[in-house]
Every structure is written in structure tokens, then in C-alpha cells.
Nucleic acid binder design. Structure first.
Lengths: 221, 221
DNA sequence: TCACTAATGTACGAACTAGTACGTTAGCTA
DNA sequence: TAGCTAACGTACTAGTTCGTACATTAGTGA
């Protein structure tokens, strides 16, 4: 998230379109993540900004488009993180573990993103559908997975029948659930999935799981 | 879900507290699952019922308590399904696969439940916390997992360092994600995780993953 | 320096929404 | 069958919430 925090001496009123826009997006991200789409209040977003509600409509058109823009920016952040990923120098097993760990870390570090995605799912992904940007930005992580899989399968380390998108779903589900379902899981089972003391344990567990799946000999079917 | 659908000849007005209550819960479940807690409309729930809004407040006290009761009932259904589970006659590997498959099936068959849990997570699991019923109903599935794990570890089939709650989280995350994130995943990757043609594939993949994890020799750490 | 426009602020309204005051009736029980 | 109460319906209100009409000013280019 591009956070904005110039001091802005009180009383003085500065015009800065980019700053105002970014500040609205920052606050809106928090507010939507906090309360959901319908629970979020446009007035509340405005109040926590150095500008007024009028500006939200000026820059974004309305609550719906504001949420779409918030989503676009949140997905942009994860896409950037995935693009940083460089595992070509590692052997397939180490590479896939590294990918899993980076995914794990990113989910943990961006709970707001997880919440926004959960909210978007409740609403049928309608904002993604309405967004031109989000329509066809494939995941860079997918390309990485494809390369690792191809290399691992070629060398015979990995079983042959694994698909990149499926593996991505497997890794994502584990990382996502840990954050998205933290509250109900904690309430029902008395265990905090985000407990810092257990972090390394869960991180290793994910890697072990994925590698075990990829290297196990499958029973005939 | 205990669905209610007596014909109830038009014009005639029958008094039936249990039926009215159940009908409100049925409709409320759909409405909350459809639109989220804040998106759901009490008037809409009432309108789709053969009774009036007044009755919602008569029986449940308010929107908040109505949602809590909806949640309690939804969790009750899954707990019942878990209690049906009988895998004691199977060997550990078959038993754990069976457990995974039953979990898989239940999630797929109850998308409304998944949505309600997602919604509850957005709101910090506050309704679970407020509910006496939901406070301490452990999951029967957990007991089953504990027995299978103990048996599998004793016989040396499974690695020793796996915890029941962790394994439950692993299985749940896969099953949950497939339903909860169907919309965004489909929109971003063009693949429907609930495609009936892929159902068997994903079901087998889960079992393979869990068994691979449980039977793999762990690298020293 | 003048004028023009992008950027901003104020005040308000129309529609919605949870919740309630009050009145009515079915059906059971004494 | 009289009366009592659980069950139900109608109509309304108070407060909220998204959105906008209108007024204003900072900064830039001619």
C-alpha cells in the first residue's frame, strides 16, 4: 500500500490531486477491509481523510467504483511481489518450497488484502468483472510454478500429472485460510493460526505438504 | 437445513410457531449468505416469508441474534454430518482419505454454510463469541482425526509429528477455499473450482495430498 | 496579471432500514 | 363457552447513508 503521510501544517490547505486520491484509497482499503462492502461507510472514509466526501465522488464516482479501485491496487501489490520472485537458480524442490514460503509470507503480511478478496467473493467477484485492469492480469506466480513443475517433472523428481493452476490453488488455499478463517477457527478450536510462536511451524508444514505431494508416487488410478 | 414447505392454502391463516420460526431461519440463511450481514435486509427476509417482519423480532429479538441463530443451525448441520462418520473399520490410510472426502463433499454441498462462515470471519467471529451454543462444541471430526493419527503413527505408517488440529486445518483450508474463493479464482484464472467435470480430480487430489504429507519421510530439521 | 479550470468545501435531500407501538385473532384450557 | 395468552399483522418512526447542487479557491498558462 502506498501510504501517504505528509505533515501538512494545520490551517494551510494544499492542492494535491495525487495525494488526495492516494489518501482516500488508503483509508478506503482499511474501512472496506474492516467492515465489508456494505458495512463500510462512505462518510467514515471521508472523515478519516484530510479531505471531504465530495472528493470521493469527484475522483472515483461512487462507492462501488471506489471499492473496485481499492481491489485493483491490492491485486497490484501482490502481482508486484510475485514478479520479484526469482527461483531459477534453485533446484525444483528448493524452488517450490521457496515459492510456497513467499506466498505464505505475503498472505500473512497483507491481511487487509485477504479480507478484501473474501468480501469480493461474497459479492460474486462482480467488481473484478467490472474492472478492465483486473480482467486479464494473469498471475506471475503461475509462470514461475509452470517453470518449476516442468523442470521437476523432466528430471523425474516430481510426479507427472500435476497442473500449475491446481498447485497454485493448493498453496493459496492453505495460506489464505490461515488468515481469512483465523477468527472462526480460533473461536471454535481455541488455536490462533497466526500465533507468531507457531509461524515457523505452519510455514514448514506448507512446504512439507507441497513437496510430499509433488514427490510421492501416486497409487494407480 | 430443515426446509419448510407446507402448502398452506391461500387466505387461510394458520398458527404454527415452530413452522414460522423455521421458515424465517431458512430464508434468513439464504439472505445472509447471499448478501452478507450488512447487505442482508430484514425487510427482504420478511417479504420472502409467509409471515411479517414483526415475527422476526418476536422470535429472535433482532438482526444480530437472527444471524447468530442462523450460524448456530449451520454449524449444527456440519457437526451432525461429522458424527455420522464411521471409519474405525478402515486402515489409517483409507480412513484419512475417507475423512478428507467426506469433508470435501460436505463443503461442496453446503455453499451457504461456507459463505456464512466467511461473513462471520469478516466480522471477527463476534457472533460465535456471543453464542452459548457455539462456544464449546468441539468438532467430532477432530476426535476421528485423533484416532486415525494415533493408529497410523503407532503402526509406523504415518510420520510422528503431525497434530490433529493442524491436519484438520489443512483439510479444511483446501475444501473451504474451493467454495469460498470460487468467484475470484474463476474470474482471475478462468477456471471454475466447482466444475462438476473436475470434481473427482480435485477430490482425489486432496486425498493424495494429505496421504503424501502423512506418509512422507520428513527432512531433518 | 488575468482568466480559466482543476480541485476542494458546505449544506442538504431523498431513500432506505432497523426497530417498535399498538391492535387483532386463533386456539387452548378451565 | 368464556377468557386468556401466544402468535400474528399494520402502520409508523427515528436515524442513517449514499449521493449531489451549489459555492469557492488555488494554481497555471496566455
Amino acid at each position: 500500500m502506498t501510504s501517504v503521510e505528509e505533515p501538512a501544517r494545520p490551517g494551510e490547505r494544499i492542492r494535491d490531486a495525487a495525494r488526495t486520491r492516494a489518501e482516500i484509497l488508503d483509508v478506503a482499503t482499511q474501512e472496506f477491509a474492516r467492515a465489508g462492502y456494505d458495512g463500510a461507510r462512505v462518510d467514515e472514509i471521508a472523515a478519516r481523510t484530510r479531505t471531504t466526501k465530495r472528493m470521493i465522488y469527484y475522483y472515483f464516482g461512487g462507492k462501488e467504483q471506489l471499492f473496485t479501485t481499492v481491489l485493483e491496487r491490492a491485486y497490484g501489490v501482490i502481482r508486484e511481489a510475485e514478479q520479484q520472485l526469482d527461483v531459477d537458480h534453485l533446484d525444483p524442490v528448493a524452488a517450490i518450497r521457496r515459492l510456497a514460503e513467499v506466498t505464505f509470507d505475503h498472505h500473512e503480511q497483507h491481511p487487509d488484502f485477504i479480507r478484501l478478496v473474501s468480501i469480493e467473493n461474497i459479492h460474486g467477484a462482480q467488481h473484478i468483472a467490472a474492472s478492465e485492469k483486473l480482467g486479464k492480469i494473469g498471475s506471475p506466480a503461475l509462470d514461475v510454478i509452470r517453470r518449476i513443475l516442468a523442470s521437476g517433472q523432466e528430471s523425474g523428481l516430481f510426479t507427472a500429472d500435476v497442473d500449475a493452476v491446481d498447485l497454485h490453488a493448493m498453496i493459496s488455499s492453505y495460506c489464505f485460510f490461515r488468515v481469512s478463517n483465523r477468527n472462526t477457527f480460533g473461536a471454535l478450536f481455541g488455536r490462533d493460526l497466526l500465533d507468531p510462536a507457531q509461524r515457523a511451524h505452519y510455514r514448514a508444514m506448507l512446504g512439507d505438504m507441497v513437496i510430499a505431494y509433488l514427490t510421492a508416487e501416486r497409487t494407480a488410478d
